[in-house]
Design a protein around this nucleic acid. Structure first.
Lengths: 193, 193
DNA sequence: ATAATTCAGGAACGATTGTTCCGTATTTTC
DNA sequence: GAAAATACGGAACAATCGTTCCTGAATTAT
């Protein structure tokens, strides 16, 4: 009945993640989106509704990708402590490698929009809860198998880990490129486990 | 020779801190500034140059206020460990009390602008270094007097503390109002000392 | 081939953006 | 009191904002 889309909606969404991640919501114009996603204004609005809808759809996709990644790594892990350090080392590596430092799309969005946009606030809070739960289960498992000290409550440690993750991403967004700074934080942090 | 200003420039700057802190740089319009600072467009531009100059002047003032506060508390402290916990408890209290959650103006600005504005990036990095040094000296003092364990290097602990401070402020900006969440983070964090 | 559908491109929308400028009022110094 | 200087309010600026709409081309199922 009708012609097919010439662009891949999923790939366009990935492009949207890229530019919103890089420039933020208010910093990204409709023209930026047209240019970067490589599709026309009309197609953009026909497909995604408006800027706010596109943004929250992009953020949700980013959220799922990140959660799935960490969740899988921790669930399949035989040594939770080792896996946790690997996850953080990976985050540090990304921070150092990023020529244009993007930090974490979720952290960026929380800071920029959570106060002023209820839907973004919901995504941010949801992400926080899910990630805390992922960390909590992993730590619980580590404590039961004796790999992680149970001197601290698992819930407390999970929230602590998430907090340091946020901090590191802010540091990255600020442009910190000295590996020693990140390593010092990780060293202090993991001395707790 | 000429009439005097009808407004207090310093108070106007405080008002600028308020609204930029609340709404961010891109989220604050020239009209917002006129309304909130209570002075005319022309006076605003005559006095502060442009939006970017006003913003960076506001951020610098905020930086000095924050640094002076923490610096004074730690330098005058007899028990660094106690004072550090008090500083963090104060940050938590502010996060919980804030009806409109503002987080930390410096963290917000780092996330929103450091990538795209060289001057803001400089302020952010400078703040980071100064605060790290303040924490470093305090911890060093604490370790020498035996109040803080010297199992961890002072430099590492200083960076670790700063990182958790950033994390807590992001959490606040995300709207977290559950005191238990903050307390859990602090509990884990200070168990290192 | 025809009809139905939806694509892409770009013109155009009103609203808002940050900024400039002008006329007037006010104050200060001489 | 005259002259110089500057704050003030508001009009006006061009540019950009997010969004809508119109056009013709392209593709599909019948």
């Amino acid at each position: 009945m009708a012609r097919t889309k010439e662009f891949n909606e999923d790939k366009a969404l990935d492009k949207a993640i890229e530019i919103f991640w890089h420039k933020g919501y208010n910093g990204t114009s409709a023209q930026d989106l047209v240019t970067h996603l490589g599709l026309s204004r009309s197609s953009l609005y026909d497909t995604f509704g408006d800027k706010q809808k596109l943004f929250s759809k992009a953020l949700k996709k980013y959220q799922n990708q990140g959660q799935d990644n960490v969740k899988k790594l921790l669930e399949e892990s035989n040594d939770v402590k080792v896996t946790l350090t690997e996850i953080f080392k990976q985050a540090v590596l990304e921070s150092l490698e990023d020529r244009i430092t993007k930090g974490c799309f979720m952290v960026n969005s929380a800071v920029e929009l959570a106060m002023h946009d209820a839907e973004i606030a919901y995504i941010v809070r949801d992400n926080q809860k899910v990630m805390e739960e992922v960390f909590y289960k992993a730590i619980k498992k580590g404590q039961e198998s004796g790999q992680i000290s149970d001197k601290q409550e698992a819930r407390s440690l999970a929230r602590f880990i998430f907090n340091n993750y946020s901090g590191i991403r802010v540091l990255a967004r600020g442009g910190e490129k000295d590996k020693k700074v990140y390593d010092d934080i990780l060293k202090a942090m993991f001395s707790l486990f």
